[in-house]
Design a protein around this nucleic acid. Structure first.
Lengths: 179, 179
DNA sequence: GGCACTAATGCAAATATTTTGCGTTAAGGA
DNA sequence: TCCTTAACGCAAAATATTTGCATTAGTGCC
């Protein structure tokens, strides 16, 4: 049977932290398993046995980092909330660190981590849309927003080297709201 | 100055072929640099010098494999052509080999390969849309199709483990054509 | 065509990494 | 508390990556 308790959790936390710290390293981040293990005070074999591969470890760390740190801002006007949230989302995802995390999440073998990532944005959207429904309004569905706004933005981030899509994203949002 | 001539091209072709062949291997594909080099009749250092990393090599191979092997079918009815092409596109991309290639293209450090990939689908769409314009019709723009159909399909393939989206994709296409 | 220049490769030693067997530690259940 | 065994540490073995130097072969020039 599995044993997620105490020690395992502590070690995983130490390893995740080690990855973050090594990213900040001034002279080029040395993201190798031995380096991460050393920083975390753990033997490399622990990492290999738990994650199998550096790619898998980085995928899980990235998924965790993509977890939103706060619920979407609530101004009272849900359309405005959506716009504010979207601006931040696009900025974060299209930044260099954001792109790197997306690469890493998608680089992992198991779809689990990528799924987690989209679950997060779904939750954030749901939070805003729930408030809209409380106000007896008729907002679009989460899926309509995913298809109409999030997906096109992500496609461009992943498949082109294009600059920040700020206005473009807002235009997509307006169009989806008008339907 | 660069020397893409003769030998380099031959070696690159041999290496790409080696990757393909190792994928077919019955008892688990051994996609390591040394294995690829051995199969291609080349020393590993050649691969390391040219691509730097296994991820980069696989990204470029995947980009090449995602190149469409034929122009979209032409039935005379461009709406039908779009539908036929889309069905095949979705089937190919959501298959296990297709997903693996997408992972590999996106896993590379440089955006170049992913960009190539989306350029290919853009070309295919353009080919169909050009025929529509020749017929003095008013088809949607390439970007409208990318935003309205391709992006949502890709988002689901990349971020969920959901099953083949055949009908879903067609529904997206219909909606985009009606606008 | 022959020649000079040097990018691209081959080779092999030096490093770095990943894997693996076995002993030890510590969750989780009785 | 005791037992079972998942998870870890350690170190040797197996692989993979890097690097310096020698060799091969595109490319431009005469």
């Amino acid at each position: 049977m599995a044993r997620p308790g105490g020690r395992s959790a502590r070690i995983q936390a130490a390893i995740f932290k080690a990855v973050e710290e090594l990213r900040e390293e001034p002279d080029g981040p040395d993201l190798t398993v031995p380096a991460i293990a050393a920083r975390a005070g753990v033997t490399p074999s622990t990492i290999y046995r738990r994650w199998g591969t550096l790619n898998e470890l980085l995928a899980q760390v990235a998924a965790q980092n993509l977890r939103p740190d706060a619920p979407p801002e609530a101004t009272g006007d849900w359309r405005r909330d959506l716009e504010i949230w979207l601006r931040q989302f696009v900025e974060e995802m299209s930044s260099d660190p954001g792109r790197a995390m997306l690469r890493e999440v998608l680089g992992g073998e198991r779809a689990e981590n990528a799924g987690q990532c989209s679950a997060y944005t779904r939750q954030q959207l749901d939070a805003i849309l729930d408030r809209a429904r409380d106000a007896s309004d008729e907002p679009p569905s989460t899926d309509e927003l995913l298809d109409g706004v999030i997906a096109p933005v992500m496609y461009r981030i992943l498949f082109t080297r294009a600059a920040p899509d700020d206005d473009y994203a807002i235009a997509l949002l307006q169009r989806t709201l008008e339907r």
